[in-house]
Design a protein around this nucleic acid. Sequence first.
DNA 1: CCATATCTCTGACTTTAGTCAGAGAATCCA
DNA 2: TGGATTCTCTGACTAAAGTCAGAGATATGG
Lengths: 292, 292
Amino acid sequence: MGAVETVRRFNRSYTQRIGVLEQSYLGTGRPLGASRLLFEVGPDGAAVRELRERLDLDSGYLTRLLARLADEGLVEVRPDPADRRRRAVTLTAVGLTAYRELDARSERKARSLLEPLTERQRARLDEALGTADLLIRAATVHLRVVHPVSDAATTALGEYYAELDRRFPGGFVPDPPDQGADALRAPDGAFVVATSDGAPVACGGVRRFDDSTGEIKRMWVATGWRGAGLGARLLRRLEDEARRLGYTRAVLDTNRVLTEAIAMYGRAGYREIEPYSQDNPYADAFFEKTLG
Amino acid sequence: MGAVETVRRFNRSYTQRIGVLEQSYLGTGRPLGASRLLFEVGPDGAAVRELRERLDLDSGYLTRLLARLADEGLVEVRPDPADRRRRAVTLTAVGLTAYRELDARSERKARSLLEPLTERQRARLDEALGTADLLIRAATVHLRVVHPVSDAATTALGEYYAELDRRFPGGFVPDPPDQGADALRAPDGAFVVATSDGAPVACGGVRRFDDSTGEIKRMWVATGWRGAGLGARLLRRLEDEARRLGYTRAVLDTNRVLTEAIAMYGRAGYREIEPYSQDNPYADAFFEKTLG
DNA sequence: CCATATCTCTGACTTTAGTCAGAGAATCCA
DNA sequence: TGGATTCTCTGACTAAAGTCAGAGATATGG
């Protein structure tokens, strides 16, 4: 497989050269960890909890790093009024200056990397890195089964409905969120959310159609994430969940305007069948697949 | 400039996700630095000096890291017979096993990154990273003026002549290496070598043609490096050197089979002129440019 | 052959990074 | 309302990473 070699080769030259982008944090008189943290807090501030997850730090260690930044007068840590166990971090005026300095350094580094390239090459690199970025993000998207009225699910479905509302003339009226929620949970169904950096980027569910058949519902992929194979991956995962729930066949409905989706169902082994229901007024194409 | 933003964005998502490729060295019961060093020594061994440069380590620190690996029986450090101040490092049988283990881990990591992608996406990522790799390497190539019979120059010219020999029916007989070497040195000329990871990837020289004119000679770009703007960059650098030497005009000759080169000279502002010499039997196209 | 330079090593450090157990305050849930 | 849970902080560590000033052996150029 050539791609593995390419990834490794790229990784090698990249970390040797651009990895230095990270080390642009150096020379600020502050250790790398502290700089990274300062940058991660950012102009909008952040919760300690969130920082711990994003940077994957031990809580004791993070506390100390924050205390150090606070001593330098760069950040303020104060309890979150909503839940006083939690603490929120914000940059002070001095901290904001330091943040901007880091930002400017990183920008300069990136600029100086591009500097030897011609306009044509910059455009090529721009495109190549953009593509690589999308695919790498897509490959590292995290799929998981969640409760259909959990935060993650609600956010994802909210975006899904909003999009349907924009796309269908006359708009779209969703069911109230907890309507039929149990249908999308074990033992009858499942709801899967795909997240990247904590934000939902795709979702979908399976529910009982009949004893041997699961119906795929509410499949959605965020606009910026299409064309990266995320839909196909989500579909595979939903089929796995359907199998786990004991179904041997999957059915789904969709609308003919969604041509890419229909093509993707075809590639995934679905074949068109007669309408199996009139419940969904937005559906005009119906598919099935035997789950091997 | 969109490209700067793309680079920074890419860097962020990349280091967060794939940066972990490096940390695949972890969990071997050996600190990261030691693993990196072991990997850098590699099956072919390396000179201590070289390792220090490649990994940018303090000499004392490197000595200790090596001593540690030697204690574990992974490497042997012995004086270089050619110069007994220097020391050469080689892997022992045990070290080679450990090296292969690291290599396998890194391979697995890369493979698991690609695993969620479809064949189509893998191919796209392969292509995108390949392009990005080439351009990033090209952007970080190091151009410098060297003595025309230095190691760097000799290696580069050797590859250049070998290629000419392959390309021209009847082969190519180079001048002996030190022939006319002074012509390619100050105050009459200059010789520039481009290196990437220490290996020469392009070269070229300027020599005196007449009081006001420098002639560009022996421009060569390694096969794998074409199409990355390296030729244009090298040419600009040679023109700079020519200016510095007091020339106000540059001339050069080439062969019509080298269509990309001829197109590049056109883009760089060269225009075709009558043959100015019959000295070079391989030349059938002649160009000049006024150095502003 | 001698002054100078190069290369690696040693000793004596400091700083950064990271771990772990548990305390204390706040919140949640039955 | 009391027990479990969540969140952050403190104390007490260890390991890794890095720095600096020389010492000692070897090469090199005049």
